[in-house]
Amino acid sequence: MSCSRRKLLKSALSASVAASLPLSAFRFLSPAECKAATGTEGTRWGFLVDTNKCVGCGFCVKACKKENEVPYDAPVTRTWVERYVVTKDSKTHIDSPMGGRDGFTDPKIRGEEIAPADIAKTFFVPKLCNQCENPACVQVCPVGATYQTGDGVVLVDRKWCIGCGYCIMACPYGVRFFHPVHKVAEKCTFCYHRISNGQQTACVDACSFGARQIGNLLDQNDPVTKIIMTERVAVLKDEYGTKPQVFYLGLDRNVR
């Protein structure tokens, strides 16, 4: 059997290339693995608040408290509604009695009577955890009790939290509080138990006016994603660089 120099070099090269390939290169990937590797599919929960639709009934706050076992009469809440009344002299009057849990039924704001003729504009702004892409509250946790899930929701491990309160101080939006019963840091979870099981959050379900919506930001056909992509939305405290994932329609400059 003859072997030319060219043939020997060719075979040696292909043999060394074949030998350098790992076994895993020949493994069949499941569709799920392919999707995860390419990164085009998945879930990133996002929220849309339309302040043009909110009437300040407070059913969302009530539903949230009952759904998530937040003590009903304690002055803490995972979500709340703020009322803004801007008068013609450019003064802004803001209140949120009990987080708006019982709705806004009194024209008085913090006991102050405002003459209807003086009012320039009014709006209600529902607030909740922004589930930031860069959550400051997670960075400061000294024990790894709070974290971001794969689908972008920031959760608190109640068994791990030592209750130091750093995260409550770090959140620029003031959405965290100390749970009076569990004695740990507490926050909105986007109703993780509901959205993971194909339901809407309790506040979205309770809202009769469509002011609150939740959706998957990685799904381009999701109605929420479509609105965020095509309409003029704003986020709260953009300058903090936390990249909030709660988007607002009709946000006013008075809202902080």
Partner: peptide, 8 residues
């Protein structure tokens, strides 16, 4: 958290 009981 996923196993938390839904009330509504």
């Amino acid at each position: 958290w996923r196993d938390f009981k839904a009330k509504y």
